[in-house]
């Protein structure tokens, strides 16, 4: 290609700068978690795993992590069937008032997160169910639902409708056609969407903060509350849990559907 040298230099400078800013917090948290000192210091005081031993003994952190996992699982359980059906419906059928329904289903994205969070807090508060974990799971499913629908509908759009007609003409009923033809075709979308939902729900901070009480804090809220008092290396060690989960999710996403799927144009 006849890409100009100046352009390469300028673009690469910006990209390098971006990569540094993107990875700096992750690397620093990783580094800080291995310190042997009692405070986070630079240069580090030496290498040790003692803060990892420390967090294993801290019951609040362990329990908060367990609660975050439950919330994320509920979120996937709710959003997977809901979003898959909606995504297929939007991509495959000509729906009357389709654009109105789309606008409606995009509400979780167009309403600011603080607004959705407060709204759901009032909704669950009126229903008298605040103080449980499942409303948080449902709330994270609601606010991220468009991701799931988008992931499924973009892979359903590439499904040839003739395949389903072929299945029907070979004698398959509608149920069999759905499970053997439609669903396998949208599987990449379902996997991408579910992984996104799981991670976003696990990390969800603001909506958690609004819906929890002191007995059921989730891990991001627990970290936030501790940051405000004092910065100790045990928080860095807990944060590494998030880094580890994120790494696993990226590897899974890459192996199952390939990260390049996000570069595809519609």
């Amino acid at each position: 290609m006849n890409t100009s040298r100046t352009q390469s230099v300028i673009f690469w400078t910006i990209v390098t700068l971006s990569i540094l800013t993107l990875s700096a917090p992750t690397l620093v948290v990783l580094g800080a978690s291995f310190t042997s000192g009692n405070i986070i210091d630079f240069p580090p005081d030496g290498f040790s795993l003692k803060w990892y031993g420390e967090i294993l003994g801290e019951q609040d952190l362990r329990e908060a992590f367990g609660r975050s996992l439950i919330v994320a699982c509920i979120c996937v359980l709710v959003s997977l069937p809901t979003g898959t059906l909606a995504g297929i419906a939007l991509a495959k059928y000509r729906v009357r008032a389709g654009s109105a329904i789309q606008t409606y289903l995009l509400l979780p994205f167009t309403i600011p997160l603080i607004g959705s969070g407060i709204g759901l807090m009032l909704f669950f508060g009126q229903a008298g169910v605040l103080g449980n974990l499942w409303p948080i799971g449902i709330a994270t499913a609601v606010i991220n639902l468009p991701f799931m629908i988008w992931a499924v509908s973009s892979s359903a759009a590439s499904l040839d409708p003739d395949l389903e007609l072929a299945a029907l003409s070979c004698g398959a009923g509608p149920v069999q056609t759905f499970f053997n033809v439609t669903l396998p075709a949208v599987t990449p979308g379902v996997i991408t969407g579910s992984l996104l939902m799981f991670i976003l729900s696990l990390n969800e901070f603001l909506v958690s903060l609004l819906l929890v009480d002191a007995r059921i804090v989730t891990l991001p809220v627990q970290i936030y509350n501790s940051i405000r008092s004092i910065i100790t290396p045990d928080l860095a060690a807990v944060s590494v849990v998030f880094i580890a989960v994120a790494t696993i999710a990226i590897i899974a996403l890459d192996k199952l559907v390939g990260l390049e799927i996000f570069l595809k144009s519609k």
């Binding site: 700096a24 992750t26 996000f262």
Partner: peptide, 26 residues
């Protein structure tokens, strides 16, 4: 391309609180 994608997704998947915490340390 893969490297750039990972550099993008890792912070995206880690969450805002942990990233803000990293900046507090820095």
């Amino acid at each position: 391309r893969k490297f750039l994608l990972i550099a993008l997704f890792l912070p995206f998947f880690i969450g805002q609180v942990v990233r803000a915490y990293g900046w507090l340390i820095i």
